[in-house]
Design a protein around this nucleic acid. Structure first.
Lengths: 243, 243
DNA sequence: CGCACCTTTGAATGAGATCAAAGATGGTGG
DNA sequence: CCACCATCTTTGATCTCATTCAAAGGTGCG
């Protein structure tokens, strides 16, 4: 409740000043709850608000002309969703709640205020946006140039790594509220083939599945199979001084 | 020579103040020329500078464990390359000159100064970073969920659209200094298959090729085949006032 | 308990990769 | 100015990984 999920995220990288923290907390003054499956922002809509994720999973996706769906990214606690609305009037992507979620909505103009008043936060947001781009680039390389097995492994590595950072992994085990079709739409595969690859990763002793629970048994080998590059930690040496 | 390519880029979206323009021009005070094929930043390096492209083509790519290469994006006049160095100490990608290029190097810390002094520019840079992410997302959807023909068409649409915006298209014709292997590495295909798809697009009357020259004969159909979404124009309504 | 949705498995098909080799093209040095 | 070599494009034949199609188990929720 109290506190700001975004501030918490940024605190991983820098020690926030009281003023910075207060400004971020103001962004998360409101809270909105949504059911699993709910569409937060639909492709082509022009909502006036972005959201900070306070709890739950979401994903952003696009639909292609042929009816196929591509999931771009999953969003967890502390992520900002709807950022494309800073650059485009109409949302290029659909944001969907994967589980029940709690979101903190805020108007784009509020962000302008934070940027003007807190240059270091502005620089951090730029860093995070760039890091998001790099993460997408990694996914692109995975889908463009690796086997189905590696793609699935890579997605699991990414999700597991992020969950662990958020303290949501319990001795290698996480909740994975995705259908195999979701995983297929994120990796550019069919659900049938995802099934076979997951099975194979399990047979090879890298993971263990039971219901929605996923246990990573051999993270090192899983990452190796995936050509997965971990990119934890932001560079902060260049940031301007806090206002 | 005079003027700033980055300022010129941003001027497409807002009317820059004299102070903003001067700050951007200072970023491009130096110029460095490189030959085609030169590596500007190598994956894993930790250079202290980013670059603004003043002329020529570059691309950013990653090498996978299996020896395969994925090209993420091509960079033209006015683009900033090396942005990932804002977020990571080691470059996650390799920047390579496709043609002879002229670059303006500047230290990361200079950017911190611009962000602190010119909040509207900071917000614009955030917008541009977000737009870059969206562009990558479009590529991801193309590679993940469309046919080889559509992927090649999509890449051509993107490049053609950007060239035209820069005034580098002459009645549908542009210089395309890429090998079919480059195009394959950007679309996740083999050069052999790229060849067949380009041929087919030409046979179908959408494009015309001769040497390095590419002529787009039927842009509308090419975009339709590619499920290509044009995303020209940045949203600027939310930006803070200029300092 | 029953229905909707998801997972699992098998068999057939197909898009794109791989392998191989023959033309083009262009830059370089004699 | 021409010849040569490296690089790139084009084309054909074959192979493979992933898709498609189909249907039989599971699972959880109302």
């Amino acid at each position: 409740m109290g506190g700001s999920c975004l501030a918490e995220r940024l605190s991983h990288y820098v020690r926030l000043s009281a003023g910075e923290r207060a400004a971020l907390e103001r962004l998360e003054a409101q809270e909105r709850a949504l059911r699993r499956g709910a569409v937060v922002i639909a492709e082509g809509e022009s909502p006036r608000e972005l959201f900070i994720v306070r709890s739950g999973w979401l994903h952003s996706s696009v639909m292609l002309g042929n009816g196929a769906r591509q999931i771009m990214r999953f969003h967890f606690k502390g992520d900002i969703v709807g950022l494309p609305l800073l650059a485009f009037g109409d949302s290029p992507e659909t944001i969907t709640a994967v589980t029940d979620v709690a979101l903190a909505p805020f108007a784009r103009e509020r962000l302008a205020g934070v940027i003007a008043d807190h240059p270091r936060v502005a620089a951090l947001l730029l860093s995070l946006a760039v890091a998001g781009r790099v993460s997408l680039a990694d996914r692109l390389a995975s889908i463009g140039r690796t086997s189905a097995r590696a793609r699935v492994a890579s997605l699991l590595c990414e999700i597991y790594g992020r969950m662990r950072l958020l303290g949501l992994a319990d001795k290698g085990a996480i909740q994975l509220p995705l259908t195999q079709e979701d995983i297929g739409d994120a990796t550019g595969l069919t659900s049938v083939h995802v099934n076979r690859m997951m099975r194979r990763l399990a047979e090879d002793g890298m993971i263990e599945r039971s219901g929605n629970q996923l246990k990573v048994l051999d993270e090192e080998r899983l990452c190796a199979v995936a050509s997965f590059a971990d990119r934890t930690g932001l560079e902060t040496g260049w940031l301007p001084r806090p206002a």
